[in-house]
Each structure stands twice: as structure tokens, then as C-alpha cells.
């Protein structure tokens, strides 16, 4: 395995972390958008409370992936930057608005417009970002993107389908995670059935979309789909098992198991795609070997990544442990 391959593995690990942690924060925004009924207010409170301390740390995984891409595979980033600008710009709008709206609502005390306006901005922008990133991922797999036609990725039905799938997957994750948060305090325990239902709904939508996208996948991205069939079946099976296990565990109120299984479901899907994508970074345009930076640079980055992870992992664990329980009451 070359150092470029190793960096790629690190990037997929980062992508998985971003999907499972940051993705769930966006999924929370999706449920904020869909909150209805007499409980809507307390649902939104729970969502806001569960992402508050962690969303910024979770967000950094994306920065990590972007930096690794442009430093490790500079020409690939050049191509991505000049032909995927529409979906990436949309994702950025979502990222900026989501973050700003969240703090404006949390700290603004209404000084810049009513809180519920910012709440809506938060919810809508949380939905845009995973959608746009799904479209981006699909374009990397199909290779149907070019500098001369920046709209191409957004015209593809497969791409739009992948965008929806990404939204559904983040929503599914968020609902599973929120069950645990809701169950942690008697004040919010009545929300457990709500989010359990939503997790089921999310899982069903994911399954239906996956089945609907399969024929399109084979047609639009034949190269990746071929490798997917050869290499990724075990991972997809794992993903399906994870999805079912998550729902079973939710039914039994085993929330921690449900979280792990839901993570397996989404992570399995991601790795299945990543392994099928290899050795292409952008199918038909850029491969790993074409794009890799000189190996001394990649090795230096890998050392920095290892050192960095050694530094940030312990505090990250402390962060998540610190906020697993509801806030102590005086």
C-alpha cells in the first residue's frame, strides 16, 4: 500500500466520522424542519440541546477531508473545484447558514429577528447541505462533470436521488441518536416514541431509495457499479444488517446498541462506495496515482494526522462523555 492509498484510507475514515457525527447534526435539522404537532417545540429543544456542544467539533471533519484532498491529491481538487462548483456552493451556503442560524437562535435573544425565523433557516440549511454533498458524491462516481457545464451534476436524476438518499440517511441517524437523548431525562422521555417512529420512517425511505437507485447506479456509473458488485457486497450486507438491528434495538429500548448499529448501516454503505470507487477519485478523469502529491509530502501529512489524532482523540471522547447525561439541575 502506497502512502497515497494510506492517506485515502484516512480520508474515508474522516468521511465516515463526518457522516456519522456531523451528518447526524444535519439530520437533526431535518427533523427540526419536519417537527409537527403539539410536541414540536419540545422536539426542537431536544434537537438543539443535543447538537449544541458538539456540532462545531463534528463539523471539523469536513475541513479535515477537504484539506487532505487538496494537499494529498491537488489535481483532483482542481477538477472538483472547477466542475462541481454548483453543488459545493450549495453545500457551503447550507453550512454557513446552519452554523450562523444556530448560534443566532441560541444567543441572539431575538435581537436579530425572532428566534423561530432563525430556527427555520437552521432547519432548511441543514437539509440543503447533505443533499448537495450527496449530489457531489454521485458526480464523483459517475464522472459526469465538466468545467464547461457546471450544471451537469444537478441535472442527473441519479445525482439528485443520491442527494435525497444522503438526506434520508442523516435523518435516520439523527432519529436513532435522538431516541437515546430523549430517553436520558424524564422531561423528554415522551419524545422517545416520536423519534422511534421517525427512525423507522427514515430507514424505510433509505431502503426504498436504495432499491430505486440501484438500476440507475448500474446505468449511470457502470464502472463503479461493476466494482461495487465485485467488492462491496459484504459491506452492503453489513449495512443492511446494521439497519435492521438498529430498528430492532430501538424497539427494545436498547439505545446504545441502536446507535452503534445505525452507525454500521451508514458506515457500511460509505465504505462500500469508497471501495468500489478505488482507484478512481473522479471516474474517468482522475485516479489516485495521477493525482497524488509527492510522497514525502503525503508522508509528512500522515505523520501530522497521526500526531493530530493522538492529541484530539482523548478530549473528543471527554467531550462526548461529558454531554451524554442531561444537564445537572441545581
Amino acid at each position: 500500500m502506497t502512502s497515497a492509498d494510506l492517506l485515502l484510507v484516512v480520508m474515508v475514515i474522516g468521511l465516515t466520522a463526518y457522516a456519522l457525527l456531523g451528518g447526524a447534526d444535519f439530520g437533526g435539522g431535518v427533523w427540526d424542519l419536519l417537527a409537527r404537532g403539539p410536541d414540536a417545540r419540545s422536539q426542537r429543544r431536544l434537537i438543539s440541546a443535543s447538537i449544541g456542544p458538539v456540532w462545531e467539533a463534528n463539523h471539523v471533519w469536513l475541513v479535515f477531508i477537504v484539506v487532505a484532498l487538496f494537499s494529498g491529491f491537488p489535481p483532483a481538487y482542481g477538477v472538483v473545484g472547477s466542475s462541481l462548483e454548483i453543488p459545493l456552493a450549495a453545500a457551503l451556503v447550507g453550512i454557513v447558514l446552519r452554523g450562523a442560524a444556530y448560534v443566532y437562535r441560541a444567543y441572539g435573544a431575538g435581537a436579530a429577528g425572532p428566534d423561530h425565523w432563525w430556527g427555520h433557516v437552521f432547519a432548511i440549511s441543514s437539509t440543503i447541505t447533505p443533499f448537495a454533498l450527496g449530489v457531489t458524491g454521485a458526480a464523483l462516481a459517475t464522472g459526469k462533470m465538466s468545467t464547461s457545464d457546471p450544471m451537469e451534476p444537478v441535472r442527473s436524476v441519479f445525482g439528485l436521488g443520491c442527494g435525497l438518499f444522503a438526506v434520508a440517511a442523516t435523518a435516520f441517524l439523527a432519529a436513532v441518536y435522538l431516541c437515546k437523548d430523549a430517553g436520558a431525562s424524564p422531561v423528554t422521555a415522551h419524545l422517545v416514541p416520536v423519534f422511534r417512529r421517525r427512525a423507522f420512517g427514515g430507514a424505510v425511505v433509505c431502503g426504498v431509495l436504495a432499491l430505486a437507485l440501484l438500476p440507475l447506479f448500474a446505468h449511470e456509473a457502470p464502472v463503479v457499479a461493476g466494482r461495487f458488485g465485485d467488492r462491496s457486497v459484504p459491506l452492503v450486507a453489513l449495512s443492511a444488517v446494521g439497519g435492521v438491528a438498529a430498528l430492532v434495538a430501538l424497539g427494545r429500548n436498547q439505545f446504545v446498541v441502536a446507535r452503534l448499529a445505525a452507525g454500521l448501516a451508514v458506515g457500511g454503505m460509505l465504505w462500500g462506495w469508497a471501495i468500489a470507487q478505488y482507484p478512481d477519485l473522479i471516474v474517468g478523469q482522475v485516479t489516485v496515482d495521477d493525482a497524488a502529491a509527492p510522497s514525502p509530502n503525503i508522508r509528512a501529512m500522515l505523520y501530522a494526522v497521526v500526531g493530530g489524532l493522538v492529541i484530539v482523540t482523548p478530549p473528543m471522547i471527554v467531550l462526548y462523555r461529558l454531554f451524554t447525561r442531561p444537564e445537572p439541575v441545581e
Binding site: E56, A57, H59, V60, V63, F64, V67, A68, F70, S71, G72, F73, P74, Y77, A293, P294, N297, I298, A300, M301, A304, V305, G307, G308, L309, I311, V312, P315, M316, L319
Partner: peptide
Amino acid sequence: GGALGLSFTMEGFAFFTEAI
């Protein structure tokens, strides 16, 4: 991009630490 990789990677981790 390759020449600047190490700086940006380390900045990424500094940002990580800060956010946590």
C-alpha cells in the same frame, strides 16, 4: 496544494482542538 498540505493539516487539528 501538496506544498501547503502540512500547514493546512496542522491548522485543521488546531481548529479541531479549539472546537472540542
